[in-house]
Write a protein that binds this DNA or RNA. Structure first.
Length: 589
RNA sequence: GGGGGCGUAGCUCAACUGGUUCAGAGCGCUGCCCUGUCACGGCAGAGGUUGCGGGUUCGAGCCCCGUCGCUCCCGCCA
């Protein structure tokens, strides 16, 4: 009795057909005589009716059905009696009158209900322990299906554009400058280790030297860093690299991909090309290099208005070469002192010395600092910040990087407090990042992204004189305040790459040689100009599903402590395994 | 490494300031009844070491210390 249809397939035109369905008992409604079963499979629900007057044997057997029993049913599709159709189900116009019932496998009572609606969702730890049950929930099945569709669309898109999907090694070599890596001891090479790749970066560049020209891969990547709602220790990237291109080619390519993905996954047209914003502008206006541009509340620079101010905090910041910036939280004058204190704590945790504010209530400016302001300063602020009754103005005064960070965070928190409408899909290219940032701890320059990023051509002469002024040919794709991905045009000249390693980043010559020597060698054999990008595939799928959490789009994710609760991994291993690997443990027990 | 939240029945949660509604509700589960339900309905019932270990107290689900687990954030994620 093989099934003829799935559970979201039968409609009015199938009426009178004899069909077979198989699936799980979703719910049972036993009226004593007639019995209704909602039969569930991956695709949906179909109501099956057992009628003792029609088939006493099947009806009798159906009394014993319980949640999650696996059954097969043979029956006739028929219209539901007038008035009993269920408009909530796609299959709600019909039902299957069962002739035969086979219990393929009974089920114990599940530890939680396999149900999306009903209001109670079991705790995530329990759902992770019984992930195979959690994945039966229609919303999770939907997520898996959507993820598949996005993957398929991606592969089709790149195939149509002449790309080859090439697999790169999972057993790679340690490259300690980036994220912490997972290490794999080598049995046949005692004392030596592989590392799992944080990304296929170096391999994809080698593929360009190899003449592949257009490469992509749905690549598994691994980072042994602490987890977040949008970070798992293993995750998937849409990894791309192309030869003979410039930044414009990459923007167009990715815009086309995302337009196609949105079309397939959500049936929505997204406008292209996407707007672009230089890094400096993003920081000045939004205090973030991944600005959420769905709402305003932008940072406004008022430094000039306080150059002569009597308020020492503001004037001092300007005198020291810093800035004074403010944002207007429209309508938040009702904020409580406790909430102000919380905001201040937040500001301090990001490096601010405090958080000055003005409440505009009852036609007055209420603030501990308002007494320091003269009329000109007040007028300037009123105009620049469009201050009105009911507003709350929040200030940052410090080095500009600190003010960016602090007000950027405050802006997001305040938007949350105000429940500001954030709708639509605001794609944005953030461009012109600084190639290098100075690290005060180690007293040297570090690559903002990675050391393979090429400089903007006109800035190259500054590499020797003003490294911090050099812009990289790097681009981030941002959607609604989430960094979806990033990439760059790469350095392809061996002398330039060597110079970046040794002269600019001050990586000792021997270390540069052991870690990247093969790249420099490769570049000497006719490396084409090339560039690439990588998009966070899990984040992309989560956004498309409307979830803030990438665990919802990963079949078997790990907890915040990087545990797999279903298999209890990681776990201890046998002493013999360790001996084979030449590994001795040093752990407290 | 640091900070916040949570942990009470199989599940989701309640239990005011530590004390006579102090172990409760809804769902699920079990039994009986029920022939058009789809959150089916009715009657009855079972089910608890309040995560674990200490402590304070006449008295602890509630307070304190430790510990374990889940979660969010900071650091970290070239």
């Amino acid at each position: 009795m093989k099934r003829t249809h799935h559970c979201n397939e039968l409609r009015a035109p199938h009426i009178v057909q004899t069909v077979s369905l198989a699936g799980w008992v979703h719910v049972r409604r036993d009226h004593g005589g007639i019995i209704f079963i909602d039969l569930r499979d991956r695709e949906g629900l179909t109501q099956v009716v057992f009628d003792p007057e029609h088939n006493p044997k099947a009806a009798e057997l159906s009394h014993g059905l319980r949640s999650e029993f696996v059954i097969a049913v043979e029956g006739t599709v028929r219209a539901r009696p007038a008035g009993t159709e269920n408009p909530k189900l796609p299959t709600g116009a019909i039902e299957v009158l069962a002739h035969n019932l086979t219990v393929l496998n009974p089920s114990e009572t599940p530890p939680f209900q396999i149900e999306d609606s009903g209001g109670t969702l079991a705790g995530e730890d329990l759902r992770l322990q019984y992930r195979y049950l959690d994945l039966r929930r229609p919303s999770m099945a939907k997520n898996l299906i959507l993820r598949h569709k996005v993957a398929k669309t991606t592969r089709d898109y790149f195939d149509q554009h002449g790309f080859l999907e090439v697999e790169t090694p999972i057993l790679f070599k340690s490259t300690p400058e980036g994220a912490r890596e997972y290490l794999v001891p080598s049995r046949v090479n005692p004392g030596k280790f592989y590392a799992l790749p944080q990304s296929p970066q170096q391999f994809k560049q080698m593929l360009m030297v190899a003449g592949v020209e257009r490469y992509f891969q749905l690549a598994k990547c691994f980072r042994d860093e602490d987890l977040r709602a949008d970070r798992q220790p293993e995750f998937t990237q849409i990894d791309v690299e192309m030869s003979f291109i410039d930044r414009e080619d990459m923007y167009a390519l990715i815009e086309g991909l995302l337009a196609q993905v949105w079309q397939v996954a959500r049936g929505e047209k997204i406008p292209t090309p996407f707007p672009r914003m230089p890094y400096i502008e993003a920081m000045e206006r939004f205090g973030s290099d991944k600005p959420d541009t769905r709402f305003g509340m932008e940072l406004v620079d008022v430094s000039d208005d306080f150059k002569q101010s009597k308020f020492k905090v503001f004037r001092g910041a300007v005198d020291a070469g810093g800035v004074v910036k403010a944002l207007n939280a429209k309508g938040l004058a009702c904020v409580t002192q406790g909430q102000i204190d919380n905001l201040t704590e937040t500001a301090k945790s990001f490096g601010a010395k405090g958080l000055a504010f003005i409440k505009v209530e009852g036609g007055q400016w209420k603030s501990p600092i308002v007494k320091f302001f003269n009329d000109a300063e007040k007028a300037a602020m009123t105009a620049k910040l469009k201050i009105e009754e009911g507003d709350l103005i929040l200030f940052g005064a410090d080095k500009r990087e600190v003010v960016w960070e602090v007000l950027g965070r405050i802006r997001l928190i305040v938007a949350e407090m105000l429940n500001v409408k954030r709708e639509g899909w605001n794609f944005l290219w953030v461009v012109d990042f600084p190639l290098m940032t100075f690290d005060h701890e180690t007293n040297r320059y570090l690559s903002t992204h990675h050391p393979f990023t090429a400089a903007v051509a006109e800035d190259v002469p500054l590499l020797d004189t003003d490294p911090h002024k050099v812009r990289g040919q790097h681009y981030d794709i941002v959607l609604n305040g989430v960094e979806l991905g990033g990439g760059s045009i790469r350095i392809h000249q061996p002398d330039v790459q060597k110079k970046v390693f040794e002269d600019v980043l001050k990586i000792p010559k021997e270390i540069a040689e052991t870690r990247f020597g093969y790249m420099l060698t490769a570049f000497r054999y006719g490396a084409p100009p090339h560039g690439g990008i990588a998009l966070g595939f899990d984040r992309l799928c989560a956004i498309l599903c409307g979830s803030a959490n990438i665990r919802d789009v990963i079949a078997f994710p790990k907890t915040a402590k990087a545990m797999d609760l279903m298999t209890n991994s990681p776990a201890e291993v046998e002493p013999k395994q360790l001996r084979d690997l030449h590994v001795k443990l040093d752990v407290e027990t």
